[in-house]
Design a protein around this nucleic acid. Structure first.
Lengths: 213, 213, 213, 213
DNA sequence: AATGAATGAGGGTTCATTCAT
DNA sequence: AATGAATGAACCCTCATTCAT
């Protein structure tokens, strides 16, 4: 059994099983963004073109599925951060580019899911989060060091505000992301440019302020 | 006075019944903001300290309860708009004051409810919405005419962006409103000050762009 | 207190209370016939123009209300039996007349109620039933003794068959009684005339066969 | 064979699922006849030996279940009509045989269901009804043409009267069908024999008179 | 005495999850 | 391994009945 050898280390999936897994995660992302966090798992199975039990074979429960969807999105957004820093000469322009790219991934639509419907302490999710966090921090810090980004605005402020502005508009499918959110993000970023036009209450929020007890 | 007028049509409520009705609406607002639009009505009843059927006696179904919660909040926010215009000499400062006051009413938490869980065409709700809309438009327009507010930002832009920034942060109770949203709102408003610091794509969104087919 | 004297013996009702009682019984009969045995008591109260609790003040529960409705109808039908025998010379014609009169009282609509929703052993109901039974038996027996009514058909047969034919036609309000049931009753009665046109299985059913264990 | 054809459109049921479906329909027929049209679906599930949700998997709601029960019974009764005409030489005897056979299927118990608890316009139900109607009309018409059946009694009269006589006696399980209804049906049929023994008010009711607006 | 309001138990229905094929 | 079917828990809502005015 040559196959058995590899199975031991990381139970390597059969080709079709692996394909199913991916289709489920993609279907889940779409369905979650479109129908919200309470979308029936049967609906996800239907979109993926598999039986509902197959979802459970791959993901023990909803939390685990959400977990993988979140990891997947975070990794893609991290890529955007790397690309923005590598390819944009102007530090503030890198912030703008990254912000718009992240918005298109609808990363924010997944935030409600993570906190409520997945375990934020899971190592894999934590690691994807930390990597993303580090990259975002770098993007922002560079712009601040270039004197283009207000220093009374922290990375935590940036992340939460951007997330909020790109969340799907309530009673709609999710159309805002495509249509308006670009305008609103740019307005917000204008407000984040140095010099500051007003005095903010409280202190700049860092990443550590996002942790919840 | 004004309250009595609103409910004048009903044959006059008994003292205790009236108290219950109010407790239910208040419990509903809290629960809706805290647990989201799918909060079980039994939970609302529990918080209000009444049996579940009492909720149904007062409000035929979830839609009707949401309807009343929404009307109630809208009226209070309209009051804030009037006060801001009456008491603030500086036109932009009126925008700031109104924005922060509306945020504290958590009006944004109710938007998802109205669009999905109530009938936006109900006369009472429509009227409350129109009154609020007219007032917000006035607040913004005054600031624009004073040369303090970007003219490439419309009332629709303002409303959606502010709504988004004040929505309860997903997997949390709702704490963001109190804590951070003030900072984010002020940053956004800084981005809305004239002169514009960047060029926005698309056209300013007016109130009419909020209507959905 | 001249009034008090009479109250002692049989707690004589105040004029308005007595009127209410009667209105409730009448509303109940109508509602029961029209909407079926599961009609909400609130609907009966509404039709009677009283509060729902007034129904309970007069009748401890649904069973008791049904009880009184049944007694009331039975007494009226008994009157028809007496009148038919007194005023019809032909014995079979007395059967016909009584049958049609009873049908118009919709007595049959109430049978389902009595057996299921009231206590058939209650003295008052039992007595009304016995009186009615005795009268019907007399009507039938006279016709048999006159040689006009099949002797292989018993009073029990007659009662059940007539009851069935005059029950409200299922998915309708109750229209059959008025419209068609006259025709069907007359056809049935034609089948009951002597001489018999066929041989029936079993034995003639008497009143005693209606009792159920 | 015939059964398979009926359900041919569905992608093919698993053996156990098919068994369950049938058990549910049978349990439903029994329970509906015994407890009436308001029988809790949980009771039906209990009798069928399945969980309540299984009923919903097979039949979207009560209406759909009733629909299938009604179709099933109608088809069986149509068979009786065909058999009676094929095997009985005497035309009136065919009426008698068919009537008793239909009674044993307790078809009448289902009438209240169809009109109120199912969609009488559903194609499948409508077709089953039309087929049955045509067959019954033929059975009666043949007897009339043979001079054995009153011509002042229409098919509509026949159907309604027979239906009423075979309905389960109200506050009882349903025992009357087996026990007494045979006697009453035969008496009624005696009344329908030619020549007529009395003059009926109104006009003979045809099938078209059963339709309701 | 009579009312309007409050209640709790129960039915219909949906959905996450488990089981048998 | 993958599927379709089965399940029970939870929610919404109604109604008989009791309570406070």
């Amino acid at each position: 059994m040559t196959a058995t050898a590899t199975e031991a280390s990381a139970p390597r999936l059969r080709a079709d099983a692996s394909r199913n897994r991916e289709r489920i995660v993609n279907a889940a992302r779409e369905a979650l963004v479109e129908l919200g966090p309470d979308v029936p798992l049967d609906e996800i199975a239907r979109r993926a073109g598999v039986g509902n039990a197959t979802v459970y074979r791959n993901f023990a429960d909803r939390r685990e599925l959400v977990h993988h969807v979140a990891c997947s999105v975070m990794r893609r957004v991290s890529e955007h951060a790397r690309a923005a820093m590598a390819e944009e000469a102007d530090a503030f322009q890198a912030v703008v580019r990254f912000t718009l790219a992240a918005a298109e991934e609808q990363i924010s639509a997944l935030c409600p899911l993570v906190s409520e419907h997945a375990d934020p302490n899971h190592p894999e999710l934590a690691q994807a989060g930390e990597e993303l966090t580090a990259l975002v921090t770098e993007v922002i810090t560079r712009a601040q060091q270039a004197g283009a980004f207000r220093t009374d605005v922290g990375v935590g402020d940036y992340l939460v505000a951007v997330t909020q502005l790109t969340r799907p508009l309530p009673g709609t499918g999710c159309l805002t992301a495509e249509g308006w959110s670009r305008r609103h993000l740019l307005i917000l970023l204008d407000g984040m440019r140095a010099p500051a036009r007003s005095e903010l209450p409280g202190r700049p929020a860092g990443m550590e302020d996002l942790k919840r007890p």
